[in-house]
Amino acid sequence: MKKSSHKNVFKDGAISAEFVGNSIAKHQTKTSIGAHNIFLGQVRADQIDNTTVAAIEYTAHEEMANAKFHEIREAAFDKYDLTCMHIYHSLGVVEAGEICLFIFVSSKSRKTVFEAIEYIVERVKKEVPVFGKELFTGVNNDDKTHQWKVNS
């Protein structure tokens, strides 16, 4: 079977503010760009029954997920006049309040990036095989330790 050689979108653990900042800085040489748009997905401390989500542990069908990210990326470039685009998703444990998804699109003008970011985020949520185990805080012996997140 043909193994995929798509770019790896995944990063171990949370995506840091420094990483996002450095990505922005790297675009200062690309002076045909007039508008950037960034989407950051953050882990929410949801209240569930008597407990709270402390973190999400992400796993994925990595080969299929990277192929899907590639397909979404190609479709976005076909559909919108983008100069560049970057996607990063976390694997492993990401604490509540930390960033787990970073999507960065750039173009000549604002309208393009507003539309493109929504298109990309919606497709990622719906089509990419990433799974999230919501780990609960303050778990006692008989308590449920986790539940599996489902995108709505």
């Binding site: 089509e127 095989p129 999230g132 995108n151």
Partner: peptide, 14 residues
């Protein structure tokens, strides 16, 4: 048709 099959639960990316 393939010798490898994956079982995927609902997606939760992002």
């Amino acid at each position: 048709t393939n010798h490898e099959i994956a079982l995927l639960p609902p997606f939760a990316g992002g």
